[in-house]
Design a protein around this nucleic acid. Structure first.
Lengths: 293, 293
DNA sequence: GTCGAGCATCAGTTCAGCTTACGGTCGTCG
DNA sequence: CGACGACCGTAAGCTGAACTGATGCTCGAC
């Protein structure tokens, strides 16, 4: 019988690529991961990963085994969900991860609803860039994660996760005057921190218009971004929710581009009562937030 | 994360009913099983089995968890099957269990075929009453098991197993003269050993004709049974394959009743190359055995 | 050439899980 | 009706799997 704990390491390796990263993600030492994978390989009787110098890569058999592991883990999640559903009252933890705008605009109301309807549920919220949500869900650091996708940065489907759509927002170009993206090719841009989704989005959107944005400031919070725009420090992309209450002097130009927000959860947890409650609370809040949705 | 080893104990408990039986089946002490189930219950946070005096019974939550366990174990079987399929040449063990008639009539030819086509496959055959095949498959003592079902003893579907039909045989009433079941109500009967499927079948069939067979001899092998019939020691039911070469003096009366033979294997192993090879060899042999099939 | 990132191996330690022994609870049979 | 046996649970001790930390190797970057 294959050991699920070891399979989980293999699955995580297929996502992260290095043993060191797997070890860090699952709070092990690289040595432990290496030993466990070696043991799994021995039990499997087939090479699962081939060493190329100082790196490792999955063999086809290893990739295939990782795919099968997704099914096993999803079934185990379904089993725990059924156990939770068999309890009469909803208790336990629900850990939600959200990007900063959602943190301010969506979550407070959702938390109130959840706290009222399910007083036995311990709610924990963590601010997290969408780029890290999938990893955090997979490694069981989170139960629900809000992710957003831009037209230029589609969300890549993760076999370990399921998603439910929450919101579609219009994107705006924030400036001190009415303008277009192309007219801002020489302007200063206010970007988010590197490695974040917003940063990637701005760069990709500008590249689609054949230029690279010249970064003058870095700010992750859209309220801060708009304050900088109002101060004449540059232009920026902001989504509808981030531009709810723009400071004086900021002109918002609606774009064709859209931002889509989803809530993601581990495959198999969709029937878990805590997840059901969380998703429906988020949907409820979002349906009252953007008129057109 | 639920522990699959413990879940397996729960699954087995749902089939066998007592902790002692689970322990014996899986080569543990009852104490170990009890401890593991207690730990599983603690981790689940829900009562899984309630103690009634000196016995235990699964709660609804426990039963439900056992059902989910079937899916997990089937996925794990699929994973190992995929690993085996990724090897270029078929190696390893294939353990086949069969009732005695099949052992003589079907298996020899199938073993020859398998040995020729897959020299790397270690074949092990074990004689086993169909009543015990399901347990042996579940506890991983067997990979393929031949089971037979009579009209009066249908095979109960086991969620842990899959089956493929192999044969349909005519049942015969063996006597020294042409007769009917009802006419034999006062006759001596040759029965198989108690607790075996053949024994159950004969008793049920007679009960369907409103009498209980009077047992004079007990014999499991149909060749022996027919020898006893020829010696005037009684009458008996025999299937087509068991009556291939009847001794002189035995009259076989065809009945409406049929015997259906299947090959069973653990759910998820249907794609395992060794199982595929074994099933197809058995099908091939059986298709050449009974003309009408 | 040197450094650092990444992986494997070895030795030591910890802890989960097994066995053995024992006690409690019930049905059963003499 | 008492003794026995079947069955389950608990306590104590032991074994082996698995993790950590130290060390060595390989390879790419500067």
């Amino acid at each position: 019988m294959l050991d699920v704990r070891k399979l989980r390491l293999l699955r995580e390796l297929s996502h992260r690529g290095t043993i060191a990263a797997v070890a860090q993600a699952l709070a092990y030492t690289p040595s432990a991961v290496s030993q466990q994978l070696a043991a799994l390989e021995r039990e499997a009787g087939v090479p699962l990963l081939h060493r190329t110098g100082r790196r490792v890569a999955l063999t086809p058999a290893g990739t295939q085994l990782a795919v099968h592991t997704e099914a096993v883990l999803a079934d185990l999640e379904r089993a725990t969900a059924a156990l939770a559903a068999s309890r009469e009252v909803l208790t336990g933890h629900l850990r939600i991860g959200a990007f900063s705008t959602a943190m301010r605009t969506i979550l407070p109301a959702a938390l109130v609803t959840l706290g009222r309807d399910h007083p036995g549920l311990d709610l924990t919220v963590r601010e997290l860039d969408p780029a890290n949500v999938a990893d955090a869900l997979r490694t069981d650091q989170l139960d629900l994660g809000l992710i957003s996708a831009y037209d230029y940065v589609p969300v890549e489907p993760d076999p370990a996760l399921e998603t439910t759509p929450l919101l579609v927002e219009t994107m705006y170009l924030a400036s001190t005057r009415s303008t277009t993206i192309v007219d801002c090719r020489a302007a200063s841009w206010i970007l988010a921190s590197p490695e974040t989704l917003c940063h990637t989005m701005t760069v990709r959107a500008c590249q689609a218009h054949d230029f690279t944005p010249r970064a003058r400031h870095h700010a992750d919070d859209f309220a801060t971004v708009l304050a900088l725009v109002a101060a004449g420090q540059g232009v920026a992309f902001v989504p509808e929710l981030g531009a709810a209450d723009p400071p004086a002097g900021v002109v918002l130009t609606a774009l064709e581009s859209r931002r889509r927000t989803f809530v993601a959860y581990r495959r198999g947890t969709g029937e878990h009562p805590a997840v059901v409650a969380g998703v429906s609370a988020l949907r409820q809040v979002c349906s009252g937030l953007v008129p057109g949705f």
